[in-house]
Write a protein that binds this DNA or RNA. Structure first.
Lengths: 204, 204, 204, 204
DNA sequence: GATGAATGAGTATTCATTCAT
DNA sequence: CATGAATGAATACTCATTCAT
């Protein structure tokens, strides 16, 4: 009981730090963020940060991985009830865009700091993140495959990645110029694009 | 005349530095790259770097902008002769993917270091780059618009960005797992996807 | 009674800590040793260490002083039964070398960390240790004086220190290159050296 | 020429740093000394220190090794003209004590910080220093051997070390209680001790 | 112009010590 | 008494930038 309470408190502190770190990292990027700043932001001392994360890099990847898991499970839930390809794609577009809008902190971390993933950083966490990403693609791919005709010229993982890439760039646009974008319309538009392409069938 | 020669020589040096910088930045990322390293790589001294670029950040953005211009003009040329929407999209997909593959240094800079674009960095160069990017989108958009039916449910700039986003993510995949990807097939697949979507017309 | 038991228990804990500390300090040196490590080694928590010693420095000096007292009393016993100068010197050489070999932990602390004695460290313990050392020299000196002819050109405290210095350096050599040294032979040799010097009397 | 001048200047700076470092290290010990402090002391900036020495440890060992070489060559010179064992020992005692008195900074470093030699510190410099010390002992040993009767019960390297150890401890005493010691007398006394021991020959 | 020696601000990380439980 | 979570001062080292030569 006492143990449980202790552990709960510890987990609580961990979360407080993660939350503050997410914001600061998103605002300033990895290199520009100082542990000092994160400490200030979450109200704990610098030393305490190291009680929960063994390095700045560990903290950084922990933030991303934690969120990435939430992202994947959100998507998973969103597409779980889809009955056909229209619904799957619609759900994907909708859920991804929505998640990024609601967690633009995470988006900035994940997209804008891919550098950390591509360059250096041994720590083993890089690998953990890459795995998470692959699992994410795989999950999406499988869901699409179920509803895609076997003779489709589009491979499901190509489709999965293309959708994700499109959402990424639109989210970026939305972050930089929010006033030029109506999210609801945009989501419909993108969904249509991936469903039917630009050439109306009647033309054929 | 002597002046011309002088200026030519100076421009030559500038290019040498840019080229070295591109490689090092791509290899190591912005923060991990030192001016010392760039100096070594191009054979000039650290001090000389500052005769051509007023700061590390200036050098960094110069590299990107220079390449971004080449990118835009390459695309422009590629789509200039397209006669219809199929050809425009085909050319876009082909040219972008090709450019990234041939200039993956640039791709890593541009995509993996978007952080520099989003975060901080006053230097005014950030704005310059954003402008370039907007111009790029505009150019692509206009070209698409010319060949898109007026009543198309897909707005040309949505299309332009979606294609670009898709290419981005496939390039990234290619960089991380080159063996899983056949560029030629992939280009065709993506083109088909944006032209006709995933739902075959015959179904209708 | 209960009090006695309590105090005994407390003393017991103190000894456990001292023993662990001696080993860790000897192994790692003062600065490289952490209270955490000592705590681990003795099975008590960091906080408990501070119930017995008011600082890391206090712990350090306590270890040394405790051992230094044992050292002095060992020597005292060894020379107490000596009947003449030969026996005193023989006993000194033998006992010192033996003690260092058996307590090389202590030797490393005492000799290799003389820095702590010479530099800084207010704590008052420095003085305590210096006093102990002076008492040690005094004791040895007096014992030598008793058996030294009054007209000896060698002052007993010069002799005492010289022997101690010689033993020190030989112990150090033994620690660094144990294979090059035969302790028994060496002890005899040193004893001879201090008794008769290098110039055989017959020569005279 | 210009090159020579540059190199001379560089060497000069290096020496300035070494000198300051020697004093600070001797005063405060290795761990307690900060690069900041050394920088202040020599008037150069912290960064400059790293232009000449790749780490604090490198600086530390450089100081010691540099001086150790001077020590060895001083001794070598001192005993080079000795004609017999009396003169060799006399010269050794005299030169060593003299050197330590004149370079007590070095003595404090070398003796009081043997910890650095015994504990940790990879850097390869540790080995360099140990080598130097062995060479020193060897040199002294050989010189003694030349003048020692073949049948002497005292091995020359035992003698060399014993003398060195004795001098060490007397120097330490002199540092801590200078007023109790008359160096000139002491040197004679020690020389006598090692030559003839404590037992007058006439006794025999 | 070209150089590279000199600078010093900036930061992750450690660890002795305290104190609420 | 015993604990160990929390603290925050302290420090080696890097690197963009400058400027005398």
């Amino acid at each position: 009981m006492t143990m449980d309470r202790k552990e709960l408190r510890k987990e609580q502190h961990r979360l407080e730090i993660l939350e503050a770190a997410e914001q600061v990292f998103a605002r300033q990027g990895f290199h520009t963020t100082t542990m000092e700043k994160v400490a200030e932001e979450c109200g704990w001392s610098k030393g305490t940060l190291y009680l929960h994360f063994k390095s700045k890099e560990d903290l950084f990847f922990s933030v991303i991985i934690e969120k990435a898991e939430k992202f994947t499970s959100t998507l998973e839930k969103a597409i779980s009830t889809a009955q056909n390809i229209e619904e799957v794609i619609g759900a994907l577009v909708n859920a991804q865009f929505q998640f990024f809008i609601e967690n633009n902190d995470f988006f900035q971390l994940a997209v804008a700091e891919q550098g950390k993933v591509m360059h250096g950083s041994d720590s083993g966490m890089r690998e953990g993140l890459l795995e998470k990403q692959q699992h994410h693609v795989l999950m999406t791919t499988q869901s699409l495959q179920k509803h895609l005709p076997d003779d489709s010229p589009i491979k499901p993982d190509t489709l999965a990645r293309s959708i994700m890439g499109a959402i990424n760039i639109h989210t970026l646009t939305w972050l930089l110029q929010p006033e030029t974008i109506n999210p609801e319309e945009l989501k419909l538009e993108i969904t249509q694009l991936f469903l039917h392409g630009v050439i109306p069938c009647t033309k054929a």
